[in-house]
Simulated assay, not measured.
Amino acid sequence: MRSRAGRATRRAQDTGAPPTCEHLATLNADPSPNTPSSCEGCAELGEVTWAHLRMCMTCGHVGCCDSSPHQHATEHFRRSGHPVMRSAEPGESWRWCYIDLRVG
């Protein structure tokens, strides 16, 4: 199954759309220089398992990905409107814009 980020990248390539968006293009440094080790929402619920971690590029909130049962990263976007998150997995540097459905 292709990921949301993969589908969006392919869609941008197929349509000739720019490979990024204004939200991804205007990013500054990460709000937190450290790689987080847990999902904040899952920790509050007493959960100890999730698929992957994502960090909000606006405020540094750490949530679990959409493959996790609670999808806290997307929930944070819906509540806050913060448009971009990054993978918080070791060795990964990609970012995702929830508004424009773009990977960067």
Rank of each mutant, 00 (worst) to 15 (best):
S3D: 04
A5F: 07
A5N: 04
G6D: 08
G6Y: 01
R7M: 02
R7V: 01
R7D: 05
A8F: 03
T9P: 00
Q13D: 05
Q13R: 14
Q13Y: 09
D14M: 11
D14E: 15
T15V: 06
T15P: 00
T15E: 04
T15N: 04
G16Y: 06
A17T: 00
A17I: 01
P18W: 07
P18N: 13
P18C: 07
T20G: 02
C21W: 01
H23L: 03
L24E: 05
A25E: 14
L27Y: 09
L27D: 09
N28M: 10
N28I: 03
N28C: 11
N28H: 14
N28V: 03
N28K: 15
A29H: 10
A29M: 04
A29G: 12
A29Y: 04
D30F: 00
D30P: 04
P31N: 04
P31W: 00
S32L: 10
S32M: 11
P33S: 10
P33I: 00
N34S: 11
N34I: 03
P36D: 01
S37R: 13
S37E: 12
S37I: 15
S38L: 12
S38A: 14
S38G: 07
C39Q: 03
G41N: 08
G41P: 02
C42M: 06
C42L: 08
C42R: 08
C42D: 08
A43K: 10
E44F: 04
L45E: 11
E47V: 13
V48C: 07
V48Q: 12
T49Y: 09
T49H: 11
W50F: 15
W50L: 01
A51M: 13
H52V: 00
H52Y: 14
R54I: 07
R54Y: 10
C56R: 13
C56G: 14
C56M: 13
M57H: 12
T58M: 11
C59G: 11
C59H: 06
G60E: 05
H61C: 05
V62S: 08
V62D: 01
V62Q: 07
G63V: 05
G63Q: 05
C64S: 13
C64A: 09
C65F: 07
C65I: 11
C65K: 10
D66I: 14
D66W: 10
S68R: 12
S68E: 06
P69Q: 12
P69N: 11
Q71Y: 09
H72R: 01
H72I: 04
H72S: 09
A73I: 03
T74H: 15
T74P: 07
T74W: 12
E75V: 14
E75I: 14
E75K: 14
E75C: 08
H76V: 00
H76I: 05
H76R: 03
H76P: 02
H76E: 03
F77N: 06
F77R: 13
F77Y: 15
R79I: 06
R79G: 05
S80R: 03
G81Q: 08
H82E: 09
